[in-house]
């Protein structure tokens, strides 16, 4: 594996240089939030952050995305698929938990049958540069409980680790190696590897919050009707904050919009927390109350996804924990399930 060392203060410069050549998504400070946005070559990436407010899933799975366009003709409709013009781009500086989420989303969107062309095109044309978490994380971080680690490279093409004076840049995939030219030519030595290993171990230790995520799957298998499900949703507002913030939530809606003779079919984020999500035209709703919706969310993450893809659909970023307006904590939910 190609490995290089780069001086700490050159990082923003590298991102900007790339931005001159291709589309670069990087963390940007906007008022009180750090968000992933595209930056130009004069942009100001902001790397001194614990994690971004929103999950960078919107790079591959945007909140709103055009699936196709149509035009009204005298006889009905003529339509054209939205060509998959995914440009060469870079997602610069995501945290390992978020990079991990891409590997999870791949399982759903990049299946052999029914491949999702929109997601896959963007994914293929985007190099993911992850930045390891070496600083003390949020108290709500629990990546190590869900197959992640603060210095992990799952889902990333390049991993940057702050090893003191320098960043160690590891080019994990061939897609990552193609961008090696931007990272100078200081080769990393064995000492850097050792330093990284030491830092990685320490960072792992620093993740204090742990949940029995793997233990709950067999319990969920047999507890669909457990009265426990009556206990979570009481204060839930039925807003979509947890799912919109979540790096692995991927439910969407499809709708048409028309102006004059032109129209588009678009997909946009939807949420299993919304009452209308499953409501049928007849008025029947298989998930009639917030209880069933919460059960669905927990089951989807810790059972259904495991059944279908052999992976837990949670990366432990803690965004849902931090963003929930009524402080429902998925960690507590999992903890409680493990005791059923």
């Amino acid at each position: 594996m190609e490995k290089r060392l780069i001086k700490k203060d050159t990082l923003a410069g590298i991102a900007k240089k790339m931005a001159g050549d291709m589309m670069v998504w990087a963390p940007v400070k906007k008022e009180d939030n750090v968000l992933f946005e595209t930056i130009g070559k004069d942009g100001e990436p902001f790397f001194a952050y614990l994690n971004s407010k929103n999950a960078p899933k919107n790079v591959f799975f945007p909140h709103t995305e055009t699936l196709m366009k149509f035009t009204r003709t005298p006889k009905g409709m003529a339509f054209s698929s939205e060509a998959n013009k995914a440009n060469q781009s870079v997602l610069f500086g995501v945290r390992p938990c978020d990079a991990h989420s891409f590997a999870l989303l791949d399982k759903l969107f990049d299946q052999e049958k029914y491949q999702d062309a929109y997601y896959v095109a963007k994914r293929q044309n985007t190099t993911v540069i992850a930045m390891a978490c070496v600083k003390p994380p949020y108290a709500s971080c629990f990546c190590t409980s869900v197959d992640g680690e603060p210095v992990g490279s799952e889902g990333a093409d390049i991993l940057l680790t702050d090893i003191g004076g320098d960043y160690l840049a590891e080019f994990i995939t061939s897609k990552g190696e193609k961008l090696a030219q931007y990272f100078g030519d200081a080769k990393a030595d064995a000492a850097a590897d050792a330093k990284k290993a030491e830092i990685a171990a320490k960072a792992k230790e620093a993740i204090q919050s742990r949940i029995p995520a793997h233990e709950v799957k067999p319990i969920l298998d047999v507890n669909f009707d457990n009265p426990f499900w009556n206990t979570i949703h009481g204060k839930c507002l039925a807003c979509g904050t947890c799912t919109y913030m979540c790096p692995t939530c991927h439910c969407f809606d499809i709708s048409d919009e028309v102006k004059g003779a032109d129209g588009i079919r678009l997909r946009s984020w939807d949420s299993c927390m919304f009452p209308l999500f499953t409501k049928e035209t007849s008025g029947h709703n298989p998930r009639p109350s917030q209880k069933e919706r919460w059960r669905q969310r927990a089951m989807h993450k810790f059972k259904y996804y495991v059944d279908n893809f052999n992976a837990i659909a949670c990366v432990g970023c803690g965004r849902c924990v931090m963003s929930c307006p009524v402080n429902i904590d998925i960690r507590k939910v999992v903890e409680d399930i493990s005791k059923l």
């Binding site: 759903l108 029914y114 969407f252 809606d253 989807h300 259904y304 059944d307």
Partner: peptide
């Protein structure tokens, strides 16, 4: 079975009954 569907290809996440998607 009948369920509310959107994508019809097991992605949009609404028609599942347990881990099975009614559409797919």
């Amino acid at each position: 079975l009948e369920m509310r569907m959107k994508c019809g290809i097991g992605k949009c996440g609404r028609c599942n009954v347990g881990s099975k998607y009614v559409c797919k």
